[in-house]
Structure formats: C-alpha cells, structure tokens
C-alpha cells in the first residue's frame, strides 16, 4: 500500500501461499486416513506423514510471517482494533474447543446414566493416585504461568523465562504420566463403552495438552528472543488462556471420570 495513506488501523496482509499449503496438508492427511483404514496401510501411512509434514510446515511458515509482522511493527502497542481482533479470535477459538469437549462429555454422561452399573464390573479401573498427581501438576502449572505473566508485566524477564520453562516442563511431565497410565491400564479403547469414553476424553485432552505445551515452548523461545514487552505480549496471553482451558477441562475429567464413579 505504498504511497497510500491508510485512514484506519486495520491490518490488511498481502496474498499468502501458506493457508492453501496447510489446506493441502490437511487434505493429504485425510486421504491418508482413508487409505490407512480401508485400503493400503503403507500408502496410508506415507500420505499421513506427508500430509502432516506439509501441514506443520505450512503452519510454521504462516506463524513465522505473523511473528515477523509483529516484530516489524517494532513492539509498540498495536492499534486497539488489532489487539482486540486477536483477543476475540482466541476467545472464540477456545469456545469452539470447549464445545468440542462438551460433545464428548455429553456422550459420557449419557452413557454413564444409561448403564446400570458404572464403571462396569468387568472393568478394572485405574487407581486415582496418578491422576491426582496430574491434577496437582496442571493446577501448579496454572500458577506458574500466572507467575511468569506477572514477572513479564513487572519487567523481570529472567523470572518470566524461568517460570515459563517450569510451566511447559510440567506439561511434559503430565504427558509422561498419562502415557505411563495408558501403558499400565488393564482395559483398552475397545473394552466397551467405559474404555471408549475414557480413552476418547483423556486422549483428546492429552492431545490438547500437547498442543498447549508446544504453544508454551514457542512462548518461551520468543521470551528468549526478547519478543514481548510489558504491555504488548498477546501471544503469551493467548497461550496462557489456552493452557487454563486445558486445565479446566482436566479438572472436569478428573472429577467426573476418575473420582465420582468410583
């Protein structure tokens, strides 16, 4: 928009190849899934790997462009409308994720109420120690991320980095514990409705913890690069919101899947 003075604060990006590249990745992934499930396992796996590579590559490039644009603005406070757009966008994204889990929780409650005994007597349920520790881990990580955020606001970057590191480390530990639990469970995803709902809920939650952990790692890397300022650190906040969302879903899971039925 050279030579033309803009009389509004909206940011209009140039054409970009990265959205269609990520579409291609998602499309290849889906065709790979079809092949894996019904036709050739080898072709399916190859297509899935290729699709994921293209998808992740496209997303990384897309986000690199976003970060570069943010850096190009020079970490001044962005215009209010831009900042608001990002915030609204992230909030509504989390709303959609919440509704995704709501669907699975609804299925869980329906099946819970529908079955005469829950958990079914032939299921050897998991002890609640590990999930209790995991609850503590996630709740602690909610504290550490807030600590990191406040440190950043106060301008204490070293402390912000330290607590950000602690947060994603807790995320990793959570995932390891969950993997351990999966490996030692006496039932699997095809052990009737109990196994189905258990693995579907905890599995999708675990995937979201993984995504949140990656977001936090990126936030850590950006902190190291000196990307955020005291007032302007939207990405940090978005990652934190997402992390709290993952946390809240886990508390629901812990209560309704582990504690109340047993």
């Amino acid at each position: 928009m050279a030579g033309h003075k803009q009389d509004h604060d909206f940011y209009i990006p140039n054409s970009s190849i990265w959205p269609p590249v990520t579409c291609l990745g998602a499309g290849l992934f889906m065709f790979g899934m079809v092949s894996l499930l019904k036709f050739s396992s080898f072709a399916g796996k190859s297509l899935i790997v290729l699709g994921l590579l293209v998808l992740v590559f496209g997303m990384v490039q897309w986000f690199r462009v976003l970060i570069a644009e943010s850096r190009a603005r020079g970490f001044v406070n962005p215009p209010r409308v831009l900042d608001l757009a990002n915030r609204y966008g992230m909030v509504f994204f989390i709303v959609s994720e919440l509704m995704f889990f709501a669907g699975f929780f609804a299925a869980y409650f329906y099946i819970y109420g529908f079955n005469l005994e829950w958990p079914p007597s032939n299921i050897e349920t998991l002890a609640a120690h590990l999930p209790a520790i995991n609850t503590l881990i996630l709740l602690t990580s909610g504290v550490t991320i807030t600590w990191s955020h406040h440190a950043l606001i106060k301008g204490n970057r070293a402390e912000a980095r330290k607590f950000m590191f602690a947060t994603w480390l807790l995320g990793v530990v959570f995932l390891l514990f969950q993997a351990y639990e999966y490996a030692h469970a006496a039932f699997s995803i095809d052990s009737g409705a109990y196994g189905s709902t258990f693995y579907m809920l905890t599995g999708f939650h675990g995937f979201h913890v993984f995504v949140g952990t990656v977001m936090l790692m990126v936030a850590h890397a950006r902190l190291n690069r000196g990307d955020f300022t005291k007032e302007n650190h939207f990405y940090f906040e978005a990652a934190a919101w997402y992390w709290h969302f993952v946390d809240v879903v886990w508390v629901g899971l812990f209560l309704f899947v582990y504690i109340i039925p047993s």
């Binding site: 529908f114 079955n115 189905s196």
Partner: peptide, 10 residues
C-alpha cells in the same frame, strides 16, 4: 469403540 454399540454399553 462402543459409543453407539449396545453390546458394549453404548
């Protein structure tokens, strides 16, 4: 899985 399968409790 057995979400919609009566035999498995769905």
């Amino acid at each position: 899985t057995s979400f919609f399968n009566m035999a498995g409790g769905g």
